[in-house]
């Protein structure tokens, strides 16, 4: 088991980050949509946003780590990809990083533009760094819009991965899955 990427495949760190963050991102989307529908007397009215924020902050830390890890690792070869696929997949990956960064920062601002800190579970809290009255509306609009944009991008990403697996029959999806699932090369 390689922690780092090789020229042929992804390392286990990136695989763990990829699937772990994917699950967290879908969960946060669902939690975010659901918590807005809660009534004031729901037992989840306070814990749901608290969890949403806490997971979001941890996800931001993972995102930064993942980006640095990506820079520190070689990229598995893409020679088998058509030029269009190479450019398109690279664009989608960069868009993921950018949108995730902005959505997480905007979420942080929804809570913190009045000067309050964002509590991460009951573990630590992030202080407010910017105060502006009414800015929570802009932050909220960005957060909401990007949530759907990211879901759309994730849909595109999934369709592309399945297309490579079932139509092109290449190793694109396989090399992001645990090694023992596919022992033989395609």
């Amino acid at each position: 088991m390689n922690l780092k990427n090789t020229s042929n495949t992804y390392g286990s760190v990136i695989k763990f980050l990829h699937w772990g963050m994917a699950i967290a991102i879908f969960a946060l989307f669902g939690l975010g949509v659901w918590m807005r529908t809660l009534t004031y007397y729901s037992p989840w009215y306070k814990p749901a946003p608290h969890w949403h924020q806490s997971i979001g902050v941890l996800l931001l830390a993972l995102l930064v780590f993942r980006f640095l890890w990506r820079l520190a690792n070689e990229r598995p070869n893409q020679d088998f990809l058509k030029p269009f696929d190479r450019i398109a997949s690279h664009t989608v990956h960069i868009a993921f990083y950018a949108l995730l960064l902005v959505i997480m920062v905007s979420g942080y601002f929804i809570t913190s533009v009045d000067g309050s800190s964002v509590d991460v579970f009951n573990w630590f809290s992030i202080p407010s760094i910017y105060e502006k009255q009414g800015a929570e509306e802009i932050a909220g609009f960005i957060h909401w819009t990007l949530a759907y944009a990211i879901m759309a991008l994730a849909g595109l990403h999934t369709i592309a991965a399945l297309k490579h697996h079932y139509v092109d029959r290449d190793i694109t999806l396989k090399r992001m899955l645990p090694n023992h699932w596919f022992n033989s090369s395609p």
Partner: peptide
Amino acid sequence: SNHAARDK
């Protein structure tokens, strides 16, 4: 109301 998320 002195609380951004509530004001929103």
